[in-house]
Design a protein around this nucleic acid. Structure first.
Lengths: 193, 193
DNA sequence: TGCAAAGGTTGCAGAGTGTGCAAAAGGTGC
DNA sequence: GCACCTTTTGCACACTCTGCAACCTTTGCA
């Protein structure tokens, strides 16, 4: 059975989703300008003040729930065998993360449409600690076998990140399979562009 | 001799630099919170309203003047011979852009320090049309020789971008030469990671 | 020199985001 | 029904950013 804490967590997640849905609906139907905190709150039947109990910025409600927590990238990397070559580890992590988009593909299309109409959203919603995370990942990759230096580490991380994003984007546009496109992109990286 | 328009442009650029200098000084000396538009304007001896005649967001004043205009990337690419393989064209463009950081290296260090202390700055200041530009570049690259498809185009662009950024970052940290590091990164890309 | 057009600066009013605080409302366990 | 904890809400406030109209400065030209 369900503990009180679990119930609270579940309800909170549900409400968060409900607010997000209301926000996206307004933004798609009436434009991004119409999606003020006041309007979103009214549609979701909460007070404006409460909106900020669920999202710390307005934009956070208008983009997809992130596919991974920032620290998770380093965690997943750390879970790989220590003697595995860096590129193999990164590929494995990329595959895990790319696979997560499947279950929420329909939603992703919706958010994709919104982002296509309002490209500034992506920039505004970008995680604040992105660069710090990147630095941490560089450090983690640097100590693995098959890495010749920090520049190599940087390129490996940016490349794998780029491959993941490219695969997802391309799949969204062309309708192909994320998994196959990811493998294709990773092969390009591995064998040289 | 100087035309009136040229004088105006020059003065405008100078004032913009003066405001930026004041802003960065406050942010470094007293922290990012202290750097309100009001405080910056007071330090630069202008009214808060005037601040927004020079910068459209506060963050714009706190990051380095961009090394290239958004459209410039496509322009430079368009200036390359049409039968040149895509990767060669991208490498050439990357070299041109990386070379621009030299003359302002001292300033770059200062902004780097600020960005290191406040990573959220980079995210907030990110160009709004970034993703749209990217799409345009993909399209431009796609039609060049040596590109096997859109996914390949994406990887080429992201890779070259990544190489440029990595080289600059790495140079800032290790003190190496941007040019040499860029070549190293591009070679990694070309021969495979 | 003097005047008119053009460009730059400023104040003001207002919309919108986001925060701290304390009061009210709601749910849970005894 | 009562005490405890969490959530929601209102209120006041700081801050960013915009449109508008007034004002001042620079410039072109007679």
């Amino acid at each position: 059975m369900e503990t009180p804490q679990e119930r609270r967590d579940r309800r909170r997640a549900e409400k968060r989703q409900a607010i997000r849905t209301a926000a996206v609906k307004i933004a798609l139907d009436e434009g991004l300008e119409a999606a003020t905190v006041e309007a979103i709150s009214a549609a979701a039947d909460i007070s404006p003040r409460t909106f900020f109990n669920y999202f710390s910025t307005k934009e956070e409600a208008l983009v997809m729930e992130p596919l991974w927590r920032p620290e998770e990238f380093t965690e997943l990397l750390g879970a790989r065998p220590g003697d595995e070559p860096a590129f193999e580890s990164l590929k494995a992590v990329a595959r895990i993360l790319a696979a997560r988009v499947g279950p929420i593909w329909a939603d992703a299309q919706l958010f994709g449409e919104l982002r296509r109409r309002h490209p500034e959203l992506a920039a505004k919603a970008r995680a604040a600690d992105e660069t710090k995370i990147m630095e941490n990942v560089f450090e983690a990759v640097r100590d693995r076998p098959g890495v010749s230096g920090k520049l190599h580490a940087r390129m490996l991380v940016i490349g794998t990140f780029g491959a993941t994003i490219s695969a997802v984007q391309e799949a969204a546009e062309s309708g192909g399979s994320v998994e196959e496109l990811l493998e294709e992109a990773l092969t390009l990286l591995e064998n040289g562009l």
